[in-house]
Amino acid sequence: MGNRWGIPKDVETQVRERDLSCVYCGTSFTNSAQTHKTRATWEHIVNDVKLNNSDNIALCCRSCNSSKGSKLLKHWLECPYCLRKGITKDSVATIVEIHLSQNNKI
């Protein structure tokens, strides 16, 4: 096991190398303790903690993670937060686009 969220170390490494900015809004991550907005948080694209592979685990900003919560991705993309931020199925990272095109459960 890798971290306290049960994400295997190899998956954690892959995701950290792939996701240098929020997979939803595109905010670049920093290691600064000054702001929570630019700190990466772990995200299950499909809300299932058993799916701990690099296809379902991503990094997103705290704001997007808090806003999405346990909502289905397709419903979250229609919420006021996404509308205000300009987050759409066409603006998200490739890993999220793949889920949207392949999976009706998200």
Rank of each mutant, 00 (worst) to 15 (best):
residue 80 P to H: 07
residue 46 V to C: 01
residue 41 T to P: 07
residue 45 I to W: 07
residue 81 Y to A: 03
residue 78 E to C: 04
residue 34 Q to R: 11
residue 74 K to G: 04
residue 67 S to N: 11
residue 85 K to M: 08
residue 34 Q to E: 15
residue 33 A to N: 13
residue 70 S to M: 08
residue 82 C to W: 09
residue 78 E to Y: 06
residue 50 K to H: 07
residue 76 W to I: 06
residue 51 L to A: 08
residue 87 I to M: 05
residue 48 D to Q: 03
residue 42 W to G: 07
residue 77 L to E: 12
residue 71 K to M: 14
residue 37 K to Y: 15
residue 65 N to M: 00
residue 34 Q to F: 13
residue 86 G to Y: 15
residue 84 R to F: 12
residue 64 C to M: 01
residue 75 H to I: 05
residue 47 N to S: 09
residue 77 L to R: 05
residue 77 L to Y: 08
residue 39 R to C: 08
residue 46 V to F: 04
residue 74 K to Y: 08
residue 56 N to P: 12
residue 54 S to A: 08
residue 60 C to M: 10
residue 63 S to F: 09
residue 36 H to E: 12
residue 58 A to G: 14
residue 40 A to H: 09
residue 75 H to P: 05
residue 36 H to D: 14
residue 45 I to K: 07
residue 69 G to A: 03
residue 84 R to C: 02
residue 51 L to T: 10
residue 35 T to V: 06
residue 65 N to I: 00
residue 39 R to H: 05
residue 68 K to Y: 03
residue 35 T to P: 06
residue 63 S to A: 14
residue 47 N to K: 06
residue 57 I to Y: 14
residue 79 C to I: 04
residue 37 K to I: 10
residue 33 A to H: 13
residue 43 E to P: 03
residue 86 G to V: 13
residue 53 N to F: 03
residue 83 L to N: 14
residue 77 L to G: 13
residue 48 D to W: 06
residue 60 C to G: 15
residue 75 H to Q: 04
residue 62 R to H: 15
residue 87 I to R: 03
residue 46 V to L: 03
residue 42 W to I: 12
residue 76 W to L: 07
residue 71 K to I: 02
residue 69 G to L: 01
residue 53 N to K: 01
residue 80 P to F: 01
residue 69 G to I: 00
residue 59 L to C: 02
residue 59 L to E: 02
residue 50 K to I: 00
residue 36 H to M: 07
residue 74 K to I: 09
residue 74 K to L: 06
residue 62 R to F: 15
residue 69 G to K: 00
residue 57 I to H: 11
residue 69 G to H: 00
residue 55 D to H: 15
residue 43 E to S: 00
residue 45 I to S: 05
residue 85 K to R: 09
residue 75 H to K: 07
residue 32 S to F: 06
residue 64 C to F: 05
residue 73 L to F: 03
residue 61 C to V: 06
residue 46 V to N: 01
residue 51 L to Q: 13
residue 53 N to E: 06
residue 83 L to A: 13
residue 74 K to V: 10
residue 47 N to F: 07
residue 33 A to V: 13
residue 56 N to W: 09
residue 50 K to V: 00
residue 77 L to K: 06
residue 44 H to W: 09
residue 38 T to H: 01
residue 54 S to F: 04
residue 70 S to F: 09
residue 80 P to M: 02
residue 38 T to R: 00
residue 83 L to G: 12
residue 70 S to H: 08
residue 88 T to M: 02
residue 49 V to R: 14
residue 56 N to I: 02
residue 84 R to V: 00
residue 42 W to N: 03
residue 63 S to D: 14
residue 86 G to C: 14
residue 80 P to D: 14
residue 56 N to Y: 09
residue 35 T to G: 11
residue 74 K to M: 05
residue 67 S to Y: 02
residue 57 I to F: 13
residue 78 E to W: 00
residue 71 K to F: 10
residue 65 N to V: 01
residue 40 A to Q: 10
residue 58 A to H: 12
residue 75 H to Y: 08
residue 51 L to K: 10
residue 85 K to F: 06
residue 88 T to A: 10
residue 59 L to I: 00
residue 44 H to M: 00
residue 78 E to H: 02
residue 60 C to I: 08
residue 32 S to Q: 12
residue 66 S to C: 10
residue 39 R to M: 08
residue 35 T to W: 07
residue 52 N to E: 02
residue 58 A to L: 11
residue 42 W to P: 03
residue 61 C to F: 10
residue 36 H to S: 14
residue 51 L to H: 05
residue 49 V to N: 14
residue 76 W to A: 06
residue 88 T to P: 10
residue 59 L to K: 01
residue 50 K to W: 00
residue 43 E to Y: 01
residue 61 C to L: 05
